[in-house]
Amino acid sequence: MTIVLAIAFAAVLTGLLVRARRNSARHAASGMLRSPLYWLTSLLTMTLLGLAMYMAYLHQRAPIPILLWIIVAALVPATLVLLRALKWRYPV
């Protein structure tokens, strides 16, 4: 059973890699990879991911401070607005 799950996991990762390369080639051809909006959106997304991981770590030891929730509440709409701007600027 473990072998089947390992093979399925490897197949899913391979499919994601192929899809990511295809998207990357399409983004490079359209000029999106050089766009400051793209890099800012990526930065905000990674910041949100890091903050969520920190909050999960912090939650094991103490309650999460309200300031972190406020930051998350500000980052989520900002990231969504930037993603919408990217879709508008570089329609696919």
Rank of each mutant, 00 (worst) to 15 (best):
A29D: 11
A20W: 01
W69T: 04
I71Y: 07
T2S: 14
A56M: 11
Y38Q: 07
S35N: 09
P91F: 03
T2Q: 11
R61E: 07
P36M: 01
L44W: 04
A85P: 02
T14H: 06
Y57L: 14
R61H: 11
T47L: 10
L68W: 07
Y38C: 04
L5Q: 14
L5R: 13
Y57H: 15
A28N: 10
L33A: 06
L83F: 10
Q60P: 05
R22M: 09
L13D: 09
V18C: 01
I64V: 15
A78Y: 01
L67W: 15
L86A: 04
A73N: 04
A85Y: 03
A78W: 00
M55I: 07
I7W: 10
A78P: 00
N23Y: 11
Y90V: 00
A85V: 10
G15C: 02
L75A: 08
W39V: 08
Y38S: 03
Y54P: 02
L44Q: 06
A73Y: 01
P63Q: 04
K87G: 13
A11P: 00
V12Q: 03
R22A: 12
A56N: 12
P65Q: 03
Y54R: 05
V76Q: 01
A8N: 09
A29K: 13
P91C: 02
Q60M: 12
L43F: 15
T2Y: 09
S24T: 15
R22V: 09
L58W: 12
G50W: 02
A56R: 09
M32C: 07
Q60F: 08
V81A: 09
I7N: 12
A56L: 12
W69L: 04
R19E: 03
M55S: 06
V4E: 15
L67S: 15
L33R: 11
M1V: 13
T45Q: 08
S30T: 13
A11M: 07
P63K: 05
T14S: 10
R34A: 15
Y57K: 10
R61Q: 12
V76G: 02
V92D: 15
Y90M: 01
A29W: 07
V12D: 00
T79W: 04
L44G: 09
P91T: 04
T41C: 10
L5M: 13
Y54W: 13
F9V: 13
Y38T: 01
L37K: 04
Y90E: 00
A62H: 13
L82C: 06
L40D: 07
V72R: 05
Y54D: 07
R21T: 06
V92W: 12
I3L: 15
M1H: 14
L48T: 10
L86E: 01
L83G: 10
L51Y: 03
I70V: 15
R21D: 01
L58P: 05
H27G: 05
T45I: 09
W69G: 08
A28R: 14
P91H: 04
A78D: 00
L68Q: 03
Y54L: 12
L17I: 08
M53G: 12
T47E: 05
Y57E: 12
M46V: 11
P63M: 04
K87V: 08
P77A: 02
T47M: 07
V18K: 02
W88H: 11
A56K: 11
